Simulated scan of single mutants.
Amino acid sequence: MGYIRDRWRDPSRAGKGHRWQVKYRVDGRELDGGSYDVKAVAKRKLTELEASVQRGQWVDPTDRTTVVEYARRWAERRPHRPTTARRVGIQIRNLERDPIGSKRLAAVKPSDVQAWVSTMVAAGRAASTVRLQVRFLGSVYQSAVLDRLVATSPVVRIALPKADAARIVPLTVDQVRELANAIGPRYRAMVLTQAGLGLRIGELLALRVQDVDFLRRTARVEHQIAPVSRERVEPKTPRSRRTIPLPTMVGDALAAHIATYPPPADGPIFSTKAGAPYDHAFYGGRVFARTVKELAGAEGSTFPASTTTHDLRHHYASVLLAAGESVVAVSERLGHDNATLVLTTYGHLLPDSEERTRKAIDAAWNDAPTETPAAQPLPGRS
């Protein structure tokens, strides 16, 4: 419970009249709620403070935590995967360099966040980077609200730069075949497998003999190889654990690879000569990237120089969509949580449905009765 103290007898108030000081208790601490010239105002302030404590909306006015300090604490408590933890670390370091990071957490206003966004845009940061940084700050403040360090989040109604992602132009079958033939015999099956199963690079590197059922013609995604550590870990999301139909061309490539390069005892299909899993940077950043550079740099070549291993996943999705596979099915094959991402990423690749629309309407009308029933009068009318 709180109380109001009359500071009239305070020597420092001599000749200045009454002054009413508000005191209230939270978590065993007595805090100062301010001093007021009118007793009724002080009572109203005390009532507001006690009500906010009871509702769980009270914010500690003495807390001096800065934005970047709380961001570090927030990140330490989150169960981030290694790749996510690295990205969060970069975002925290960006906050350390920006003035907003040193501001007191409770002192940041929406106008401060908007000014920060404008500064990042003026400095030439990519629109996608700015949007990710603001989304990160919003997550930090959502946690701060729950921890009662701030009453509300200042990351609201912020005007963000528009991030226009370039439309994906998928590799053709001929381009994937050209890439597989050029990359070298030890890595050829890796290209064909990723293109024929739509795997993420970590899922490709983690594929084991026991994950492939040649008899039932399926492949099972159970793990992924973590970057840097090369440890076998859980897939990216629960939906990433999935069973994928095994095309003949992938089955043949895997069978030939296993016969030529026998897997180690624990079963990884793709491994170094020493039997260790490949590192993302080695395969994707050196072997794959070097081959792309050679193909794109050849005289008269039209091979896209920006190609990465992820473009093989795009190729897989584009082939399924062009064949009329449903968006939901493609989403499941790719291991997405929902079909929305498939629509936003590959919607422009969906085959033109104008003729199908015409046929659907014509078929419905052709199958309908040719005689039109007589019109019936509406109720209440003659």
Rank of each mutant, 00 (worst) to 15 (best):
R188A: 15
R186K: 14
L199W: 07
G198Y: 11
M190Y: 01
A195L: 15
P185E: 14
L205R: 05
N181Q: 11
I201M: 12
Q194M: 06
L197I: 05
L192I: 12
R177S: 09
A182L: 03
L204T: 08
T193C: 10
L197R: 06
R186C: 05
L204Y: 10
R188W: 10
R200D: 09
A206S: 03
L205M: 10
E178D: 15
Q194H: 00
L199K: 09
L199Q: 04
L199I: 01
E203W: 15
R200Q: 13
A182C: 08
L192S: 00
A180R: 03
A180C: 03
L199E: 07
N181S: 11
L197W: 08
M190I: 00
A206R: 02
G202Y: 14
G198W: 08
L179K: 05
L192Y: 00
V176L: 06
P185G: 06
Q194V: 00
R188E: 15
I201F: 09
R188P: 10
L197Y: 07
N181D: 14
I201T: 15
V191D: 07
L179R: 05
V191R: 09
V191L: 08
E203Q: 15
L205G: 09
G184D: 07
G196R: 04
I201H: 14
N181L: 12
L179C: 03
R200V: 10
I183N: 04
A182Y: 06
G198F: 12
I201A: 14
